[in-house]
């Protein structure tokens, strides 16, 4: 069977996987590593529920071949709480502000917000909306999500790497 060997940093830990060449990053994370935070919503890069960070940048894991992350760092929502299992301040802000309803989009929302705040620690409401335009939510109407990201930015929480 055709397989590609991929070595990368997953939430800070060096890992290796052998997966068929056509496997996407999302499939590898969910099935090989059993990290099921990132979700497949549309599968075509429209909804953002599969968002993870590759080299600190938000990407759609459903559109990226697993082979693309060889030698790179990948961070998923599971990595945010860290070894101490303490919620990231961004996650806390989502809980406090009611930014989670059904929760399907939340891991992707959080990872997009993480990348946004790492680049721009004090975004305006408009910058938050633009930065998260690739993440769809069908429950909240977005207002609470924008509030949560703005609140997290005021706490200056997203600079550290929590993996």
């Amino acid at each position: 069977m055709i397989a590609v060997k991929i070595s990368f940093l997953l939430n800070g830990d060096p890992v290796t996987a052998e997966v068929p060449d056509q496997v996407t990053l999302l499939e590898m994370l969910r099935e090989h590593f059993e990290l099921r935070g990132a979700k497949e919503g549309c599968g075509y890069g429209e909804c953002g529920s599969c968002t993870v960070l590759v080299e600190q940048e938000a990407v759609n894991a459903c559109l990226m071949l697993a082979a693309f992350v060889n030698g790179k760092s990948v961070q998923t929502v599971e990595g945010l709480a860290g070894k101490q299992c303490r919620l990231d301040p961004l996650q806390e802000a989502f809980v406090e502000h009611g930014a989670v309803q059904c929760g399907f989009c939340t891991p992707g929302m959080i990872m997009s917000a993480k990348a946004l705040l790492a680049e721009n620690p004090r975004p305006s409401r408009d910058q938050i909306r633009r930065g998260m335009a690739g993440n769809l939510c069908r429950c909240t109407g977005y207002a609470k999500i924008v509030e949560a990201v703005a609140a997290a930015s005021k706490r200056g929480c997203s600079c550290g790497e929590s993996s």
């Binding site: 890069g45 953002g48 968002t51 590759v54 940048e57 938000a58 990407v59 759609n60 559109l63 990226m64 997009s112 990348a115 946004l116 930065g131 998260m132 335009a133 690739g134 993440n135």
Partner: peptide, 9 residues
């Protein structure tokens, strides 16, 4: 163009 996620790759 697209989203941040798309523009990144």
């Amino acid at each position: 163009l697209g989203s941040v996620q798309v523009r990144n790759v």
